[in-house]
Amino acid sequence: MSHKTLPRTGPLLAGGDGLYGPIGRPGESGLALPQGFAGRVVARSGAKVAGLTWHAAPDGGACFPDGDGWIYVSNSELPLLGGASALRFRAGGDVIDAYRILSGTDLNRAGGATPWHTWLSCELGHRGRVFECDPYGVRAARPRLAMGRFRHEAAACDPERQVVYMTEGEPDGCLYRFRPGDWGDLTEGTLEVLCASGRWRPVPSPAALLRATRHQVEEARHFDGGDDCHYVGGVCYFTTRGDRGLWAYDAGGSTLERLCEGVRAVTAAPSGDLYVARDAGRARIDLVAPDRSVAPFLRLVGHDDVELTGPAFSPRGDRLCFSARRGRTEGLTFEVTGPFRA
Rank of each mutant, 00 (worst) to 15 (best):
K48S: 14
R211C: 15
G83H: 03
G281I: 04
D227G: 10
F223D: 00
A268Y: 13
A212R: 11
P171S: 10
T337I: 08
L124P: 04
R299P: 02
F297Q: 00
A146Q: 04
L19I: 02
G302P: 07
A208N: 08
A342C: 09
V73L: 01
P202L: 04
T267K: 14
A86G: 06
I96N: 10
G18Y: 12
L19A: 11
R264M: 06
L87D: 00
A280F: 04
A86V: 00
N108S: 05
D304T: 14
R211M: 13
R149E: 03
R8V: 12
L12P: 10
A38I: 02
P339M: 04
R211I: 10
E160C: 09
G112R: 02
G128N: 01
L210H: 12
G51P: 01
A113R: 15
V42N: 13
L246S: 10
F238I: 02
F340N: 10
A47E: 15
D228Q: 11
P79C: 04
R278D: 12
L78V: 01
H230K: 09
I71D: 03
A295I: 01
I71H: 10
H117T: 09
R139S: 13
G242T: 05
L107V: 03
A277C: 11
A342Q: 12
C195P: 02
W54D: 13
H55A: 12
V130L: 02
G327L: 01
A32H: 09
C122Q: 07
